[in-house]
Simulated scan of single mutants.
Amino acid sequence: MDNGRYGERPIILAMKGHPGTGKSTLAQSIAKTLKCPLIDKDHFKDCTKPLQQITKATKLINDLSYDAMWRVASAQLDLGLSVVIDSPLSHRAHLDRIIEIADRSGARVVVVECKPRDEAEWRRRLEQRSELVEYGSSWHKPSTWQEMEKLLEGYEGCWDYDVGVEVPRLVVDTTCANGVEQVVSNVLEFVSNACGAKKETIVH
Rank of each mutant, 00 (worst) to 15 (best):
W145A: 06
W145Q: 03
W145D: 03
Q146M: 07
Q146P: 00
Q146Y: 06
E147G: 03
E147S: 09
E147D: 13
E147Q: 15
M148K: 00
M148D: 06
M148W: 04
E149D: 04
E149G: 08
E149Q: 15
K150N: 04
K150G: 00
L151W: 07
L151E: 05
L151P: 01
L151T: 03
L151G: 02
L152H: 05
L152C: 10
L152N: 13
E153N: 08
E153P: 01
E153R: 08
E153S: 11
E153C: 06
G154R: 14
G154I: 09
G154K: 14
G154D: 07
G154T: 10
Y155L: 14
Y155C: 06
E156F: 10
E156W: 07
E156P: 01
G157P: 04
C158H: 12
C158G: 00
C158E: 11
C158S: 08
C158N: 03
W159P: 05
D160T: 02
Y161P: 02
Y161F: 14
Y161H: 05
Y161L: 06
Y161D: 04
D162W: 14
D162V: 15
D162C: 10
D162R: 11
V163P: 04
G164P: 05
G164I: 12
G164Y: 11
G164Q: 09
V165T: 10
V165K: 13
V165A: 15
E166G: 05
E166Y: 08
V167G: 00
V167C: 04
V167T: 12
P168Y: 07
R169P: 00
R169A: 02
R169W: 09
R169C: 09
R169G: 00
L170A: 07
L170D: 03
L170K: 01
L170G: 02
L170M: 15
V171D: 02
V171N: 00
V171K: 00
V172L: 13
V172C: 07
V172P: 02
D173H: 01
D173W: 01
D173L: 09
T174D: 10
T174E: 13
T174M: 10
T175A: 11
T175V: 08
T175C: 10
T175D: 11
C176N: 08
C176V: 06
C176T: 12
C176E: 14
C176K: 00
A177K: 07
A177E: 12
A177I: 08
A177G: 07
N178F: 07
N178C: 13
N178R: 12
G179R: 06
G179V: 04
V180E: 06
V180W: 10
V180Y: 07
V180C: 02
E181V: 02
Q182I: 09
V184E: 00
S185Y: 08
S185R: 13
N186G: 01
N186T: 12
V187R: 04
V187M: 07
L188A: 05
L188Q: 02
